[in-house]
């Protein structure tokens, strides 16, 4: 059990499967998710609601809801020279608690429910320091205030004593970033951190995260549904659909040269600021199926304009179209290109 030596990987997911028990059913939420994340990189996981992007994040830090479990696969986390198999650790055991918060920081979308309304924010940030490091309360306070200042929270001494409701959405998200990064984790997982924020505040927060990656060498996993945001911050992109990674590559490969029909559709359905108004937005027929009703073959087959019989026969494997660029689609020819549709259903 060792990480690939070619690249310094901080996290390596190998065929992770996650199942949820819902009443009498077992839903297969993550299907063979494999992701290799090099140290110091910025990975974006994109997809629409229900594609499993948040569950991937929860599985990594072992915070799946009680009815969910990792049924197979490996999650390898490299900690210094040591490699830990996170999925083998006891969920709330000492070792996992030592990783969560200290080695892997987490930022969630809804700041108001992630912060305790009855405690001062400074204390909530200091709490994770005191939990993981042998330092005094006074020292913790100094470090929190210092970090607040670095994250652009004005008047940090006074803000340390304030309660969450006294903060605006953007400021609360900065506090969340402070909690996630105060212990200097190597890896930070941010699950839709700016979805609830206005665009000008989103730009501020994203600049902040990007700076942390560049200056402090942290690794980021950003979970989002916003393709344009991905194009601004990501180094690598994983596109997910119904629990499966359907395309993976660098941001140039995936966004400038998308190969999977779903990635293409996802990108063409959002107008950019300089979109041609005479070109209709591309739509995907139907909606994402429920994980309960999935049969064999490609999960996207039911909505895909390129669908043929072979798509529905067996599970589609990832194929490499370019070094580092993998796509899960059988319709690609030997050059890794999709056939040109006669019906013109896609605006190529």
């Amino acid at each position: 059990m060792s990480l690939s030596t070619e690249k310094d990987l901080i996290l390596d997911l190998k065929s992770v499967n996650v199942k949820f028990k819902v009443e009498d059913d077992t839903l297969h939420i993550l299907r063979d998710v494999s992701l290799s994340i090099p140290r110091g990189s910025f990975l974006c996981v994109v997809g629409e609601s229900g594609c499993g992007k948040s569950v991937t994040a929860q599985a990594i830090v072992q915070l799946l809801p009680d009815n969910g479990e990792i049924s197979s696969g490996e999650i390898l986390f490299s900690q210094g020279n040591q490699v830990v198999e996170l999925n083998q650790l006891e969920k709330f055991g000492k070792q996992m608690r030592g990783v969560r918060g200290a080695k892997i920081g987490m930022i969630f979308q809804d700041t108001l429910s992630s912060l305790n309304p009855a405690h001062k924010v400074g204390r909530q940030v200091a709490e994770s320091l005191l939990q993981h490091l042998p330092i005094s309360k006074g020292e913790a306070r100094t470090r929190v205030i210092e970090l607040f200042r670095k994250l652009g929270i004005p008047d940090p001494e006074r803000r340390y004593e304030a309660y969450p409701h006294e903060f605006s959405g953007g400021m609360r998200q900065r506090v969340m970033i402070a909690i996630a990064t105060i212990c200097e984790p190597d890896l930070v997982i941010a699950d839709e951190p700016t979805t609830a924020l206005d665009v000008t505040i989103q730009a501020q927060i994203m600049t902040l995260l990007k700076d942390l990656q560049k200056s402090a060498g942290k690794t980021f996993i950003l979970i989002t549904h916003n393709m344009a945001l991905v194009s601004e911050v990501a180094d690598h992109v994983a596109v997910m659909y119904l629990g499966r990674v359907v395309e993976y590559g660098t941001v140039e490969q995936v966004l400038r040269d998308p190969r999977h029909p779903y990635t293409k559709a996802l990108m063409a359905s959002v107008p950019d600021l300089d979109a041609d108004k005479n070109v209709e937005l591309q739509t995907v027929d139907g909606q994402t199926p429920s994980p309960a009703e999935v049969t064999v073959g490609c999960e996207f087959a039911g909505r895909c304009p390129y669908v043929i019989a072979a798509c529905k026969e067996k599970t589609i494997e990832m194929t490499q179209v370019n070094p580092g660029h993998d796509v899960r689609c059988v319709r690609l020819d030997e050059n890794g290109k999709l056939p040109i549709l006669a019906s013109g259903a896609l605006h190529e």
Binding site: S168, V199, I201, Q202, A203, Q204, A228, S231, D272
Partner: peptide, 22 residues
Amino acid sequence: LLSAVPSMNPTAKDQRVALQGE
């Protein structure tokens, strides 16, 4: 406001006007 909108267009990043405060 326009410059804060993330864009797929790689040149857009260079013309960013960052708004301070809220």
